[in-house]
Amino acid sequence: MADGIQNGQAKRVSNAAIFAGCAVFVAGMVGAAYASVPLYRLFCQVTGYNGTTQRVEQYSDKILNKSIQVTFDANISPGLNWEFKPAKAVSPKIGETVQIEYSATNRSSKPTTGSAVFNVTPMEAGAYFNKVECFCFTEQTLQPGQSVQMPVVFFVDPELATAPETKNIKTITLSYTFYPSEPSKPVAALPEGQKAGAQKTGTQNTGVGKL
């Protein structure tokens, strides 16, 4: 009888522990959802992990006589009333620099701001997809009904054709997702004639000694 009571108590304790663990997990996932965009941005910029592309300052100096198909995908997060269209697929030579354009239109009746995150599939190709110019992580504020063209300039690193994990890849897809964001407030300029040091101490520059 005593063993049965102990077993019942142990089972209740175990169930309570499982429930508590699930609650903590759910709370963590909710928090992660709110922080996902800025954390994703930081993580991508630092690591280039999980199919994220590389940002470079110069073009490829080598072009192979081999083409690869590049397709494009466009997504909008709930809460942003935009129309977001991808560019048409292209088939550049590996190493060739290409410019394409996405387009976005604000369908709401007020100015709205969005910021885009991105990824590349298959994930193994992310390290070889080099962007020279893009609109990722840059705030885009559109007026009601306004449309914009957003260029992306890129090339596929020739090493993709020889790396064991990527040499058989025939198609790469670049995908962007726009999320709603609050426009950044401009930093207020110092009043004319006021010194930076005076602002820090809370004193005003009276202009004494000024020629």
Score class of each variant (00 low, 15 high):
D3T: 14
D3K: 15
Q6M: 13
N7G: 06
G8R: 14
R12L: 15
I18Q: 15
F19K: 12
V26E: 01
A33N: 11
A35N: 13
S36Q: 08
V37A: 10
F43D: 02
C44S: 04
Q45W: 01
T47Y: 01
Y49Q: 07
Y49E: 04
T52V: 09
R55L: 05
R55K: 07
V56G: 02
K66A: 03
A74S: 15
L80N: 12
E83A: 13
P86A: 12
I94S: 01
E96T: 06
T97K: 01
V98W: 00
V98H: 02
E101A: 08
E101D: 11
A104W: 07
T105L: 10
T113D: 09
S115G: 10
A116G: 06
V120D: 02
T121K: 11
T121D: 02
M123T: 15
E124M: 08
F129V: 01
K131Y: 05
V132W: 04
V132A: 04
E133Y: 03
F135K: 11
E139Y: 08
Q140E: 14
T141H: 04
P144I: 02
G145D: 05
Q149S: 15
Q149H: 10
M150K: 03
P151Q: 05
V152T: 03
N168H: 09
K170T: 13
Y179C: 05
S184T: 14
K185P: 02
E192G: 03
E192S: 12
A196N: 09
A196G: 13
T203F: 13
N205E: 04
N205Q: 02
T206P: 05
G207D: 03
L211K: 11
